[in-house]
Simulated scan of single mutants.
Amino acid sequence: MAEKRKERESKTKEKSLTKSLTKMKSKDDEVHICGTDIQALHSYSVHNTSFATLPDSTPSTPDPKKGKHEPSLSEIQENIVRCINERVNGLEELLRANTVSIEALKKTTEFLFNEVKDVKEDMKNVKEEMKINHEVSGAHGKKISEIEARLNEVEHYKRRWNLRMYGLVEQAGEDIKARVVDICCAVLPELTSKLQQDVDIVHRLGRKLEGNAVKARTVIIQFVSRSSRDMLWKAAKTSSYLKTKEIRFGEDLTTMDKAVRKQLWPKVEAARQFSPVFPGPGGL
């Protein structure tokens, strides 16, 4: 089988060589014929003078076609290097600008950190001072409260000899003490002689206002005897004479006592709804 295959291949090669030689021979004959014809034409033209001679002219050759310029390897390398350099320069400028910005941010951050640190220290010191001041103020406040309570107690004890009269109309050139003694004797006639001696100081409170005929100024009365004052105060609560004259007596309370009464009064009003005979703060 292998030998037959070799024989077929050799025969195929011989046939292809024979064909190529035949073609080459035909081409040589054509060239030879063309050459003979050209020589005959040349000799004819030389010997035949009947043809007019033409002036010599330079043959015009067509311009070669302008083809696309293909860059060389060195040009490609130069372009790559140029692009890389441009990109590197741009990155260097960007890096330089970022470096400056980072340095500025770093300084700003350090400044803010130091400011925050100082503020924290100040707040810590302020808290410590506030704590100390609170302790001191608490102690001082306690002492002040104790002193105020003691002063109020002293003032309250002193005012137990006083009574206030409301609703007594003012008169021009009045003898306020004589008028008050007469009213006291009318409320408690059985102590007329004693009240004339026990009423010590009488005067109106505040500055007199011109044309103030609607509201009379309050009258304060100081007694020599505490017992006379208490008896008059008790009798004034149910006196028909005072109701007719639209005059009433009241206790001479301190500022602290007034605040306490003001806080207690709503509770008293609520208690009176359940018990109409419940006394007010002044009757406790």
Rank of each mutant, 00 (worst) to 15 (best):
D29A: 06
D175F: 10
S10Y: 08
R159M: 03
Q197W: 02
I221W: 02
N114P: 00
T109G: 07
M165N: 04
N125Y: 05
S137H: 12
I80D: 13
R272T: 04
C34S: 11
L95S: 15
P71H: 06
H47E: 15
D200T: 03
F274T: 12
D257R: 00
K267D: 03
F223P: 01
L191N: 07
T61G: 02
R82M: 08
R272Y: 04
D118T: 12
T192W: 01
L94W: 06
A186K: 15
V126H: 05
I221L: 08
I132H: 13
G90V: 01
V224E: 08
V187L: 08
P71T: 06
L195M: 10
D198I: 00
W265S: 07
P281F: 05
G167C: 08
T49R: 11
E146Q: 11
D200P: 00
A52C: 10
D230E: 15
Q77T: 10
E110D: 07
L94A: 15
V100K: 14
L188G: 04
C34I: 09
K120N: 14
Q222I: 00
K158Q: 11
Q39F: 08
S145N: 06
R82H: 14
T53D: 13
D257T: 00
P55T: 06
R82Q: 14
A259M: 08
N162K: 07
V100I: 13
V88R: 13
D198P: 01
D182N: 08
V46C: 05
A149N: 11
T109D: 03
D200N: 05
M123N: 10
Q171H: 13
T254A: 01
F113H: 03
E121P: 00
E92M: 09
L95E: 12
C184I: 01
V31P: 00
K143Q: 13
D63T: 07
S225Y: 02
R261T: 00
K127W: 04
F249N: 01
K13I: 06
V277P: 00
L94Y: 11
K234A: 14
K23M: 01
H140R: 14
G283T: 01
T109W: 05
F249G: 01
A236N: 01
I80S: 14
K237M: 12
W265Y: 12
R207S: 14
K68P: 15
P64K: 10
V126M: 10
I33R: 08
T99Q: 11
G211H: 03
C83F: 10
K65D: 12
N212I: 01
K245I: 05
G173N: 15
N114Q: 10
R217N: 13
L105A: 10
R159L: 05
K234D: 11
F274G: 09
S57L: 12
V219I: 15
K177A: 14
L41M: 13
E9D: 11
L95A: 15
V180H: 03
V88I: 12
R150K: 11
Y166E: 07
A149H: 06
S57I: 11
A271M: 07
I132S: 13
E155I: 00
